[in-house]
Design a protein around this nucleic acid. Structure first.
Lengths: 179, 179
DNA sequence: GGGGTCAGTTCAATGACCGAACCGTAAGAC
DNA sequence: GTCTTACGGTTCGGTCATTGAACTGACCCC
């Protein structure tokens, strides 16, 4: 955050959280990271975010321990940004936001989330409708809904058209999208 | 939101939600409203927010149907801002944020939330630790913790030093604070 | 050497936010 | 009737953040 004073007078853990993830774009970067996006360029085209802002957000999210910068090839040197435990712990926040958006902003069902073990739908509060267990992030499968644009422009959106387990890296390689 | 384009490329209910409540200060205003703050001046002193920004947020939150402007006295004309159903539905988002802040930013336990019916603690996912039911916002009692400043400067923080049921109007009248 | 990809940085322009000052209505004190 | 205070704003100049476009640099392949 950091604009003059942050939420300085606030003795409140909600304000503390918002000081870390309350800036514009930040939660969308975390959402994408949880969806499996890891590369600078993939965040860029999927979010439509200005490059300078993306660089700034990736830097502060890394400093805050929400993402981890990790070299995945030496030549040319390439880094990827992977969600940490701390970042994955933001999943309930994103789920709650998404649920509110679907209920109170726009009713279209763009995606649904299912329990990988039993296929039951993950309910607003994070439990599985079928088996009742509290579903951990890594056991959630994102399933695209019928109202999603079937032919999006960017490769990341295209890769997200198929069911995908959260946290696992997103495969934008066209070879994988063909099969 | 509204800065150039909003999150325009985003086909996602999380982005939709953030277009409505993603601006700086917005979620803190909603939090205060759920805590029972209703008057312009009370928001002002409790948040330490610039007046112009508060006016703007109250206006857009009212337009979005998250708060409702309501005349509570005719002379002098005075309005209060009361959370609607739609606003109260943001409670799970705030609870999730607060939980993340407490777990991953600052471990101090500033406040806890309890089920009004049985006194059990409301868990991160909204259920009561004692009786297991999913606790609705209006059945939550906010209980101040020991690490909260015992003698805050503003009357709203002072009023929030005593246990308080969410959504009910906050009483900042000194007469009530004395007993 | 030329062209392409990726991951950034730099920069001028615009928009949002900040703090302080001002304003209008009305109540209550004197 | 005048003075003071409280409340709920608006206005304004300055600062900070965000934007989009252009540029950089490292590397690969042909």
């Amino acid at each position: 955050m950091a604009l003059g004073k942050d939420y300085v007078t606030q003795e409140c853990s909600i304000a503390r959280a918002l000081e870390v993830v309350g800036e514009r774009w930040t939660l969308l970067v975390v959402r994408d990271a949880i969806y499996g996006v890891r590369r600078y360029n993939d965040f860029l085209v999927h979010l439509g975010i200005p490059r300078a802002v993306l660089s700034a957000r990736l830097r502060t999210l890394t400093e805050e321990g929400i993402l981890e910068k990790r070299r995945y090839q030496q030549s040319p040197p390439r880094d990827e940004y992977v969600v940490t435990e701390r970042g994955a712990a933001l999943w309930p926040v994103l789920r709650a936001l998404g649920h509110w958006g679907r209920e109170h902003v726009d009713a279209t069902r763009l995606r649904s989330f299912r329990h990988a073990d039993c296929g039951g739908e993950v309910e607003p509060y994070g439990t599985c409708a079928a088996c009742g267990t509290l579903v951990a992030v890594r056991d959630v499968v994102m399933v695209p809904g019928p109202e999603l644009d079937p032919d999006p422009a960017d490769p990341v959106s295209r890769a997200l058209l198929r069911p995908k387990r959260l946290l696992e890296p997103l495969e934008t390689d066209p070879a994988h999208l063909a099969d």
